[in-house]
Write a protein that binds this DNA or RNA. Sequence first.
RNA 1: GGGCCCGUAGCUCAGCCAGGUAGAGCGGCGGGCUUUUAACCCGUAGGUCCCGGGUUCAAAUCCCGGCGGGCCCGCCA
Length: 494
Amino acid sequence: MSSEVELRRGIRRRLVELNVNPYPHVPKSKVIPVRSIVRSPTPGSYVNVAGRVVGVRRHGALVFFDLVDDGQRIQCSISRSDVDKELFNFFEKFVDLGDYVYVAGSLYYTKKGELTIAVSDVQLLAKALRSPPVKWGHRILDPEVKYRKRYLDIMTNPQARRVFEVRFKTIEEIRKFMWSKGYIEVETPVLQPIYGGAAARPFKTHVWALDTEWYLRISLELYLKRFIVAGFNKVFEIGKNFRNEDIDVEHNPEFTMMESYEAYADYNDVMELTEELVSTVAKKVLGTDAVEYPVGREVVKINLSPPYRRVSLYDAFREFAGLDVESLPDDKLIEYLDKYSVRIAGGYDRGRAVVKLFDRIVGREHLVQPTFVVDFPKSSSPLAKPHRSRPDLAERFELYIGGMELANAYTELNDPELQASFFREEEARRALGDLEAHPFDWDFIEALEHGMPPTGGLGLGIDRLVMIYTGVNSIKEVIPFPMIKPREFEAKNQ
RNA sequence: GGGCCCGUAGCUCAGCCAGGUAGAGCGGCGGGCUUUUAACCCGUAGGUCCCGGGUUCAAAUCCCGGCGGGCCCGCCA
């Protein structure tokens, strides 16, 4: 079978025979970024650049081709009358779509007015044995190829590239924002003997050196609180969490969170921090905090400027569903659970029932503009401090934007005795089959026993924030290499 | 866990309903062309029709099973 790969291997072989290295260590002269040329072009000047060949238009003795360098495209032309014949023939015979090349030449504008390099020298920098799957600027339509070989998506599609530029700029700007607020960025273990800080099933692994089962963290929370116990007043961490659960448009088993903890603060302070962060970072990254996001079939304008609406969970039920859940007796609540076929692992619990019904009954269409839903039932929040004026509630909020939950935060529980009793309740639920119940963490209790100051904490989903910023509605679009079932390597074209 | 849809050339897809020589455009390769930019013109090669089994004289097409992907629902406090 004569494939593209075989053909190009033949070209590579011939180059080696001609003593031309198809993979030199560096370009023959120092190159400058194409972006810097495009930013301030000076026609007539001589430039050295490098890039991937993404388009070739041959006109016999004149060839136009496009280079892309670090995401920036520039057109080049090479003319038989302007360069020596051998160089022109070399380009014709040995340079293909996808190759990296060095070119030197002078800048000019074509008849159509496009900035172009009139090439006087060419060097092959890396022979590509496979050409790009689609023309540059076009989308890879097969989602499987797009996610499995994301480098091809980013290589060929500037819009995909932009999503990741926004993603990593967002992370950078979150860091700067938190630093500017006096937070210290810390690191905590990814591998943990006891997982915690959220309700989720963990990934398990075996540590041979200690011959013990360990877990990949499901949140950053419990170790960051240990930093507060240690005497750091303001800490944050940006890192991967791992939850062994299903994959869909809003969930990937491996995802990125920013968590922060601040001593002497409560959830009201954290709300102010959160809305300022979401807005400030948007302005830094996008130049605006007014964004558009697809909700259902419509694209909705979303204003990320503070202040965000605060609405209590019970008021949200009243306002959006006309339902006074608060005064609903348990038997009525159970009827609703049946009606919406909601199951509660580990047995009926009023608080959990309310929270589950919230997702089902209130609906996301009411939570498109940034909204803090505040004051959750105590029993659904085993790491939050009980409400200062409502014993049945916890001081907890979730931030919704575009119908998605972006953040979860508490006035943190710092009473070790109460925390221990919450853990015992969780253990009881686990015994009744709740696989996501919080495990009892004695070491964490002991840390709290040494005294943790009043603290406000935040967990912010970075992937979902980037979704809002970029207007995409699948988490796979903002995770460079989303989890996808592995495939046996096909010895294709080998 | 349940449902729907998809898998044919490197890419995008037609052919399947109603079984009968596997197609188009782009890309590749060869030729032509000095201002194109999804260049154009002429020619040409390229296939495990996702895999396995069944029905049939005959299967890309019909049936069963599997693999991979997407979407929806459930789950994800």
